[in-house]
Design a protein around this nucleic acid. Structure first.
Lengths: 329, 329
DNA sequence: TTTATTTCATGTAACGTTTCACATTTTACG
DNA sequence: CGTAAAATGTGAAACGTTACATGAAATAAA
């Protein structure tokens, strides 16, 4: 007679081993228990192929060893690598990770936060774009790249230093006329500081610079137009460009090719993020590299409050420069 | 007096609204209930900011609306896109997804399967490399790219047709001497069929071909050596190469560049997967595109057994060719 | 051998839901 | 207006754990 109908419970194990329920619980949780009892219980567990029901555990303990990660998607390599390293950091601590792809949709973000809270996750890590995202007071939350108030820690790379580094690098490589190109969310987030850092770097090196900032809604074509307008007699008036992401850098390099400008001979390009071909081969462009593994680790540390110090409002992690073919060095 | 200590429960709502527990449950689950009662309960829910505890629901119902996805990582763009589309397909059905990055480690794969079962997930989707992976009989499992026995459905693109298409395409583009290059897992999985398909295609078009198959442990350098050996008087004896993945195609194209062979003028390259720059821009190389969104959708459909037909052992989804610069068209 | 003390298995209550038999109210009909 | 039938709210039991108070057995002391 088969009974595949439902998985065995602790009660089944207790019956099989001829001991009390509490004894099985102790064995399962490694609490002290008499040698002979332990063996009987362990045998029964093997025989029945028993596995604890972590939903029952979660209900009882009000602790689920589960965290939710909110990111727009895993298509963009930067988000994908963030997801990977956060997953690893959580797994290392025996936490499960629920992945929530928000597609940049503020409503979806809110929906997932609510879902996560219902699911009684132990915490949420979010790279979100909803300026009025409501997170329950008693759900730990760590934000990436955007400050969400004094009680919610934010982890980001040092975007200001990154901008500055880009400017200095371009200057060192001989550029005298540079520009900063930016598109994406117009929200007040950390990546915005790349602009100020770049500006600061240009000023300190005494090179002239221009800014072209496009928000979400603007079509990419405006960049193409901007660049064409700066071409006189076939020559681009910029000898260096700093693009807000590696993705934009790639698009710009394609545009420049169409405009008959050579990269890096005529104009040098520096991006931001540190994206590599197929995730782990060479850099797609010369870039300011975000320390993604460290960002991930820091998010998880803060989320699980491993050190009970008061949470800092903002953690800035150091960036570095990497050569990737779109500069002279 | 504050009571932020713990989240409100149904019992709290019932007390607040002055109704019975069961009535609250009915309101929460949209079951018929008297208008005046419904309003009282809904008010109480709002006032207390009540949210259901899905762990308690899961315990009671033995259904958790959660699935686990096992993939090596989200660094590799193919896996990353798989994760994204599966996530979307699950979310659409109000299922949560636990992401498990296995790093190609068979032991870790087994660990995650066990974990998922303890977590009482409603099912597992896995792209795994453990030939002896043990999955409990009563946990639905859908495998990607590898057949795991008659009772576990496997979803893959039509790898044979893909190989054939690559051969035909190369032949159409004028190639007469081609080769197939493959590295990666030596497991008997679906992607292995690319070779047979390619062979078949070459034979039917009457072009000569060679195979260079490297397994996991072989260093990439062997490809470089293989190619050098086929260069006579500076000229490569192949005019077309079919590489098992886009990733390998990229590495090979770099190697060819070092060997002073021009792509696609001297030798045309076709890869497999359909990887795009930054996930959504242009194809990194000419390639056989896997229908990732359809694969994802099919996995989820089979997992949740939406159509109660007996599960097919293998679902093959059609591939297509996309131009990406490493061929003449 | 008896008593005091320690050790450790036992079994029940509780976690927050859902479900279902039961009780109560409302509606319909004669 | 009274009774039967239909409609609907109630509260206890159960899901599979953990924790704790209880009691039994084993050990140590007298």
């Amino acid at each position: 007679m088969r009974r595949e109908t439902s998985a065995p419970t602790m009660k089944d194990v207790a019956r099989e081993a001829g001991v009390a329920l509490g004894t099985v619980s102790k064995v399962v949780n490694g609490l002290p228990v008499g040698e002979s009892y332990r063996i009987r219980v362990e045998d029964a567990i093997h025989k029945l192929n028993y596995q604890v029901n972590s939903y029952a555990q979660g209900l009882k303990a009000n602790k689920t060893y589960t965290a939710a990660l909110l990111i727009p998607n895993t298509i963009n390599p930067f988000f994908a690598s963030l997801a990977y390293y956060i997953n690893i950091a959580l797994m290392k601590r025996h936490y499960r990770m629920i992945l929530c792809s928000t597609d940049f949709d503020p409503l979806l973000e809110q929906e997932y936060v609510t879902m996560a809270q219902q699911n009684k996750v132990d915490g949420i890590i979010g790279l979100t774009y909803n300026p009025t995202l409501i997170v329950e007071e008693n759900t730990p939350f760590v934000s990436i790249d955007r400050s969400m108030g004094p009680h919610i820690p934010c982890v980001a790379c040092d975007n200001f230093a990154g901008g500055q580094l880009a400017a200095e690098k371009l200057a060192d490589l001989g550029c005298r006329n540079v520009a900063f190109l930016r598109n994406g969310s117009s929200l007040d987030n950390e990546p915005n500081k790349r602009k100020a850092g770049f500006e600061n770097g240009c000023l300190s090196r005494g090179i002239s610079y221009e800014m072209k900032i496009l928000d979400d809604s603007a079509p990419y074509e405006e960049f193409e137009q901007f660049l064409s307008e700066h071409i006189h007699n076939g020559k681009l008036s910029f000898d260096g460009l700093f693009c807000v992401t590696d993705r934009l850098t790639y698009l710009i390099s394609e545009t420049l090719r169409r405009l008959n400008q050579r990269v890096p001979e005529d104009v040098q390009l520096i991006g931001f993020d540190g994206i590599r071909s197929f995730g782990d081969i060479d850099y797609r462009c010369s870039t300011i590299v975000q320390p993604v593994p460290e960002i991930a680790e820091m998010c998880v540390e803060l989320l699980l409050q491993e050190n009970m110090r008061t949470k800092p409002p903002l953690v800035c992690l150091p960036v570095s420069y990497a050569y990737g073919g779109t500069t002279l060095g």
